[in-house]
Amino acid sequence: MTHNASPRRIVFLSLAVLGLASAAFVLRRPLMMAAPTCVAGRWHGCFDTFNGVVLMTLVLLPLAALVVWALAHRRRAAGVISAWRLSLAEVGMVHGTVPFLWLTMMPGAAPGIAPARVSLVPLRDLVTMGPLGIVGNLLVFAALGFFAPMRFAALASVPRILALGAGCSVLVETAQYVLRLDRVSSVDDVLVNAAGAVLAALASRRWWRTTAEAPSGRPRRAPAPAG
């Protein structure tokens, strides 16, 4: 079993690196536009722009990988089952979700001035999102859907991931409305966000955590000596 896990891990990490490298290549020009501002440590023009947030997400990838390694090393030393998978899932959920939440909570042109807007008619806003908007909404909770069932056995089912994605999206849309960020709180955003979480979860289904494993990542106890 150990011999099969290592090649799978290598293939998974290789595909992830290839995907990130491809995304960075496609976005290299807009990302470089935000680089001088981010390097200078200025908030405006870096953390309040799409390009700046994406750039900092990519820049922090080595740090995220280091945290995964440190957590996995500590767990393996303690004899925890699936130390690498648990550590990767925990860091992946945070690193892959926080930047998208940050982007969705960015205010529009007139925050606090423009009236709060709500769209409760399903599929009405979907036709105006465009391909980029739909892809962006699919990715908001994709990392959460991908990694959550790998970390928590209680979430290892499609209906629960659907409920998790929809619930998190409702909270975001509610926050946008309450804070009057000059953004439309739309039911279509909830639908697409939840769909993205489910699709990502299905992609990681072979690595979902099962109830047969040790709960909460605790190490197995050594069997009691006979006699």
Rank of each mutant, 00 (worst) to 15 (best):
A40N: 11
M93T: 02
D48M: 13
R85D: 03
L120S: 11
V135N: 08
M33S: 08
R76N: 12
F47G: 06
L18D: 07
G165H: 06
F50H: 01
F50W: 09
R28E: 14
L164P: 00
R42P: 04
R180G: 01
P99V: 01
S204W: 05
A72H: 01
W102R: 05
P62W: 05
N4D: 15
W208S: 02
L63N: 07
A153L: 02
D182R: 00
A203Q: 09
C38S: 07
S157H: 13
L58G: 13
L181R: 09
R151Q: 03
S157V: 08
A64D: 02
L103S: 01
L179M: 15
V190K: 00
L162F: 14
A72W: 02
W43G: 03
P223Q: 06
L61N: 03
L179T: 11
D48R: 10
D48C: 12
A16K: 01
L179C: 04
P122E: 09
S87C: 02
G167V: 05
T2V: 06
F100H: 02
S119W: 03
H73Y: 12
V127A: 15
A222K: 14
V53I: 15
L171W: 11
G133M: 10
A5E: 15
E213I: 04
G79F: 14
P131S: 13
R151G: 06
S169W: 06
R180D: 06
L181S: 03
A5P: 09
V192N: 00
V140Q: 00
H73G: 01
R29S: 15
F47A: 09
A116H: 10
G167F: 08
F152C: 00
L155S: 00
A70L: 15
M1E: 08
L61F: 13
L63V: 08
P107L: 10
V170S: 08
R220E: 05
W69F: 15
F12E: 05
T2D: 09
D125P: 05
C168P: 02
V184G: 11
A116W: 02
